[in-house]
């Protein structure tokens, strides 16, 4: 009697398991979101690193930048946006915005772009590892525009009679 019940239980469990396997086999893989092609051929870190740890890099270095002025353009949120977001991106069309698109697909609610610019300032800004070279005004070092501004202010000071 007891043996019969345990046999029935085992058969039931087996049927359930088989049903679950068939149900899972019937599912097709979830289609990924349509991502915008990054401009440039190389990311600032290997793909496995940047995919898994970009938030750690950004989070750690934001404090370095804000509190101590240690700015690393290659690991800045601005750097991400320069390559991965189209200058004509719109929030209504997530496929033009790499970051927002993947975050919404993965149900990650990140508020970076409530404050940070969600579009590149122009279309020729790239990080230092991009084979197309860093764009004008991107690097944290002084560029020709800043040097010109400095020179102008120095000349203005020297020609001025206090």
């Amino acid at each position: 009697m007891g043996r019969g019940i345990s046999l029935v239980r085992m058969i039931l469990a087996g049927l359930l398991l088989a049903g679950a396997v068939f149900a899972l086999a019937g599912c097709s893989p979830v289609e990924g979101p349509q991502m915008m092609q990054a401009r440039g051929d190389q990311c600032v870190e290997p793909l496995e690193v940047i995919r898994r740890d970009h938030m750690k890099l950004l989070s750690h270095e934001k404090d370095q930048a804000v509190l101590f002025g240690v700015r690393n353009p290659n690991h800045s949120i601005r750097g991400c946006v320069e390559c991965h977001v189209s200058p004509t991106a719109s929030r209504d069309d997530p496929s033009s915005h790499f970051c927002l698109n993947c975050h919404s697909f993965n149900a990650v609610r990140m508020d970076c772009f409530q404050c940070h610019a969600d579009k590149p300032a122009n279309d020729y800004h790239f990080h230092a590892l991009n084979p197309h070279g860093p764009g004008f005004g991107f690097d944290s070092a002084a560029d020709s525009a800043s040097l010109a501004r400095d020179l102008e202010s120095i000349i203005a000071l020297e020609t001025q009679k206090p």
């Binding site: 750690h60 270095e61 700015r71 690393n72 290659n74 230092a128 860093p134 690097d139 944290s140």
Partner: peptide
């Protein structure tokens, strides 16, 4: 990597 900010020239 964080502290040694790298600048580069093309």
């Amino acid at each position: 990597g964080a502290v040694g900010a790298v600048a580069s020239l093309t």
